[in-house]
Amino acid sequence: MVRISSKLLLVTLLCFGSVQSAVAKLNVFACEPEYKALMNELAPNAKVYSATTAMQDPHMIQARPSLIAKLRRADLLVCAGAELEVGWLPMLQMKAANSAVRNANTGLFFGTDHIETLDKLDKVDRSMGDVHAQGNPHIQFDPYRLLQVADALHQRLIKLDPEHQTEYQQNFANFKQRWTQAIKGWEKKAAPLKGKQVIAYHSTFRYLFNWLRIKQVGDLEPKPGLPPSSSHLASLLSLSNKEHVSAIVITSYQDSKGGQWLSKKTDIPFLQLPATVGADNTQDLFQLYDTVIVKLNGAIQ
């Protein structure tokens, strides 16, 4: 049996070794769709796979066979980091037997390694719920931080694939120009949102609210990672009677029951925003930001 298996290995090697060398394109494994979208801007010729969709909570992903197979062949792994993927990525890395995507200086790129995260904690205790010591990893809605990440990512691409250096530089310059321009437009459109108060689900929109100066006065989760309980919803009900809350905001992969219940009780508009690229038919980061700001403006008067 041992002998049969080694023969099988050899045959497999011969079959697939040639296939692999024929594919010269950079093979990228992105943990979340926003990183896939960023890769599409910086390296449109690369083959990019996103492990998750906008409808999936990135904290709770199964280390499933298809992901192991994808990571096995990746040249570059691009993720949020800051422990967002701690429940599944280490298992994928262990099983994928691909040393190329384990080195944080080459094939492993964590977006949060290249920016200053919000809400870093000196001390983490499980009684606080499922929190991240390295700060909030949901950075997709901070356009300035995202630009910093894009800068670092294009440098990484050059390091991995120096042949296409000018291409990556041009792509980044192009993205930077369009992105900076777009930020001005978004900030102008979102100006009326400044100072508004909302209740949201988890700290998913921490960076969005920070950027647009929206204040999250309540969280549908009693503690990070825990689902809304009835007693907690009751406390939010009394909070919305005291404070002026303009909207209840959740994201595409979060359960709408608690938020809708609260909205019905209080007549505060309920809003489900796309978590990332792919929800609400958004195709890229520009459309994602456009949609979020249009939706916020529509709900918050």
Binding site: T12, V19, A69
Partner: peptide, 10 residues
Amino acid sequence: LAPTDVYWAM
């Protein structure tokens, strides 16, 4: 682990 699109380990 084979470099296939379908996961195949042995």
